[in-house]
Nucleic acid binder design. Structure first.
Lengths: 355, 355
DNA sequence: CTGAAAGCGCTAACAA
DNA sequence: TTGTTAGCGCTTTCAG
């Protein structure tokens, strides 16, 4: 066989041996140079680097992984949606993974996917990853895998309790409860007797979380807890809910579980002749890019996606690299309520202040 | 060394040899079973599968990649943004990659990243991928890599001309020009003498593409081509542009390069007392989820992200698996103009019809 | 239909 | 400071 005509791989891809030969050293020395190991003379290092450059050498990751048992990559399981929240989180995770020096592999779970999260995790395990991030898993129906699924790498779950059992499970995010509570209290402080809630689909932990935050605020302030309306995150569902709520003149304030629904809601309210914020105060959640520019500008809550991802990944990588002492759970991210016009004080004579 | 106490890898991960031993066959037979190769008796296959199940066997991908020279994975380079367009495309790519039986690796290029696309591609090459998807690359400044970067796998570029040189470069998407043209013509047909354009950042190919579509429509209809205002995709930049445009009463129609800017624009126009659509018609681009629910509901253009991703990936995978006959470029995706209230016919006595 | 042998390109342990 | 020797767990080739 002529050199470079090896069996597998790109016919021309040079190997560490090729570089070693050209540099006049052993293959192990090439390995040392590329791993920044100590005990390599400056001279040798130079020669190796030159030879590598000349040949266009690139370490073979598969071989590295095989020999070392580490892939230096992290897998993430996400819902396959372009919704602002999940998409932002994914971007944050990518950045954090890269910053930690790992590669990222992505697998989506579509809603209604029979294999569900377990299937996605399995596929990641097949690919070989050193750790797994499960981003905002939702509750699954009968999707329980027949086989329990042995996960033998650390897992970080973002914004939910863990849907899998693994030797080490970390969690991060999911601090939306207090934020939802703050949003609700904001409306209460504006003089509303109570606040209605337009919830997200309750199979989403994020949705339940916000609902609980809302409820706890009302209870803490001794207010009645109105019936919840459940949407599906879409502006369309917000619109439908708005038409319903508009019929009830008792409704003077609504906290929506995300901005899209809030926008649909505002539209329905407006069409029904109920002014926002004079007749009904509305608060959303997420601070999507257009929130400040819709009419009226939306009061909302901003989540620190990047911080959550970064902080979570730092702990995951720590767990991967030090399979011992567990780390401390991080402090809850800060509440960031952004007050805009949609939640101005009540104007129309005061049912809200009359009691 | 006790069995299971091998050097690399998870201490307990069973190998094909373990399965073979348990099943009473050779390791090669185990390999055959897991690769669905022919010539394995049903009986043997059963035994192997049972043994594998019992041991919790999982093929080691690194070893497969090393031995075969194929990683069965595709890398994608994206801008690290949660903007609706790019995020939707990424989701489409993930789905398409998975459907083709490949794994997905993701690397983001942040704007202003010194290494730029070349760096991201390099990192993918380091990781080892069989093909690369570059999604909506933007023009880079002095980021020209010192080393030309040898890409030796097929590349698919989505929505732009290729920023790298590779032996095989495919392209898909980028059919936004005709859509922008259709959007512009729609406004013309409504009676507007001309249409202003609120463009995206011109370093984005998508932005230039839309601008060209707009310009070509005006020229084809013999209209004057007003000066372009350039935004940065954000609603804030749309708002700023809107304040400027509101001062010019000649402006009766604006085509914005995305919905976020259109929403900011509408807000500024409205605040300045110019009614949409009666005084100024507005058309956006993307059909973001809230577009139908803002005030007024936005006329916009929907792009077939999934189709583009799917179609492109089919060709990329074909190229990977058949390093020969190139495939034909696909037909441009269909124009999908969604007419809503923001572009109703001119109402105020007609500068638009007076000429 | 099944198996034995070789080797992918690297890292890990041990010498020198 | 450098080199030698073994594998990592698979696929490939060639024999049965």
């Amino acid at each position: 066989m002529a050199p470079g005509t090896k069996r597998g791989g790109n016919s021309a891809a040079p190997s560490g041996v090729d570089v070693a030969r050209l540099a006049g050293v052993s293959q192990k020395t090439v390995s040392r140079v590329f791993n920044d190991e100590p005990y390599v003379s400056a001279d040798v290092r130079r020669r190796v680097l030159d030879a590598a450059e000349q040949l266009g050498y690139r370490r073979n990751n598969a071989a590295r992984a095989l020999a070392s048992g580490r892939t230096r990559s992290i897998g993430v399981v996400t819902l396959g949606t372009a919704l602002y929240g999940p998409a932002s989180l994914l971007m944050g995770v990518e950045r954090a993974v890269r910053d930690m020096g790992y590669a990222l592999r992505v697998v989506n779970t579509m809603e209604g996917d029979p294999a569900g999260v377990a299937g996605a995790v399995g596929s990641l395990l097949d690919q070989g990853v050193d750790g797994i991030v499960i981003s905002e898993p939702i509750e699954e129906e009968g999707a329980a895998g027949e086989t329990p699924l042995r996960v033998d790498v650390p897992v970080l779950v973002l914004g939910a309790p863990s849907p899998v059992t693994a030797p080490l499970v970390l969690t991060a995010g999911g601090g939306a409860g207090p934020m939802a509570r703050a949003a609700t209290e904001h409306l209460l402080e504006l003089g509303h007797m109570t606040v209605h809630h337009l919830a997200g689909p309750q199979r989403w932990y994020a949705a339940r979380d916000r609902l609980e935050g809302w409820r706890s605020a009302l209870i803490a302030h001794g207010r009645t807890v109105p019936e919840v309306i459940e949407g599906d995150w879409s502006a369309a569902s917000g619109y439908a809910a708005g038409r319903e709520l508009a019929r009830d003149t008792e409704v003077t304030a609504v906290f929506a579980a995300n901005d899209d629904m809030a926008i649909g809601l505002v539209r329905a309210l407006t069409e029904a002749g109920r002014r926002v914020p004079q007749d009904v105060g509305v608060v959303g959640f997420d601070d999507i890019p257009v929130a400040a520019y819709v009419t009226p500008p939306l009061t909302t809550v901003r989540q620190p996606f990047d911080t959550v991802a970064q902080e979570g990944l730092k702990r995951l990588v720590h767990a991967i690299e030090n399979p011992d002492a567990t780390q401390l759970p991080a402090a809850d991210p800060p509440v960031d309520l952004i007050v805009r016009a949609s939640s101005g004080p009540l104007v129309k004579g005061g049912r809200a202040t009359e009691q």
